[in-house]
């Protein structure tokens, strides 16, 4: 009788031990899984960042932005500001370009000549070219940014002749993280 009770106790002890060990390994497994999943999310964000960086580097040479031969020869990394303003109007009036580049927004910020305040170029205000910041979509805020230097060119008239005005600007690609 005593031996049977002792045996039952041992079985019970072993069962508890097995449950405890199983629970322990399940918890360790869950911990590893959480770390792995967060790593995946992070690598997806890194890829997104890399992609936006490459996009910032090559966007200036895409037909929607590039100066082409309008400013004397084919300049690399040259953006036609007049074209960008026209594109801004198209984007405002239609949804054609909403998912065209697969990013949230594109901004252009003129760095030189420097100005004390940031003035956004708005279609309704008609303040272009007396502004230093262009946002393709005005309805989208936030997001992570990748940028690259570009030459922002436009045609200017000084009273006697038309000349090319090229300023130093930054093209900013805004993207969303996973």
């Amino acid at each position: 009788m005593v031996k049977r009770k002792k045996g039952q106790l041992k079985i019970q002890q072993m069962a508890f031990m097995l449950i405890a060990v199983t629970l322990f390994f399940v918890m360790v497994g869950m911990f590893v899984l959480v770390i792995k999943i967060s790593g995946l999310r992070e690598s997806a964000n890194l890829l997104e960042e890399e992609e936006s960086m490459l996009l910032a580097a090559k966007l200036a040479n895409s037909p929607e932005f590039a100066c082409g031969e309008s400013f004397g020869g084919t300049a690399i990394g040259c953006i036609d500001a007049d074209k960008v303003m026209a594109l801004k109007k198209i984007i405002k009036d239609s949804t054609k370009y909403n998912k065209f580049w697969g990013i949230q927004n594109i901004e252009i910020y003129r760095i030189y000549p420097p100005e004390e305040t940031i003035t956004e170029c708005k279609l309704e205000d008609g303040n272009y070219p007396d502004c230093n910041f262009i946002r393709l979509r005005e309805d989208i805020e936030g997001g992570l940014r990748s940028s690259n230097f570009i030459s922002l060119c436009r045609k200017e008239f000084d009273g006697t002749e038309t000349y090319d005005q090229c300023d130093i600007a930054k093209l900013i690609v805004i993207y969303k993280t996973q």
Binding site: E49, M53, A57, C78, N148, C166
Partner: peptide, 22 residues
């Protein structure tokens, strides 16, 4: 891995835009 403060293509693009500046 930490993100670099500056990428090589940024310096190349800067020089290119500097040369075009009026």
């Amino acid at each position: 891995p930490n993100k670099e403060a500056v990428e090589s293509f940024e310096t190349a693009s800067f020089v290119s835009s500097l040369l075009q500046h009026n």
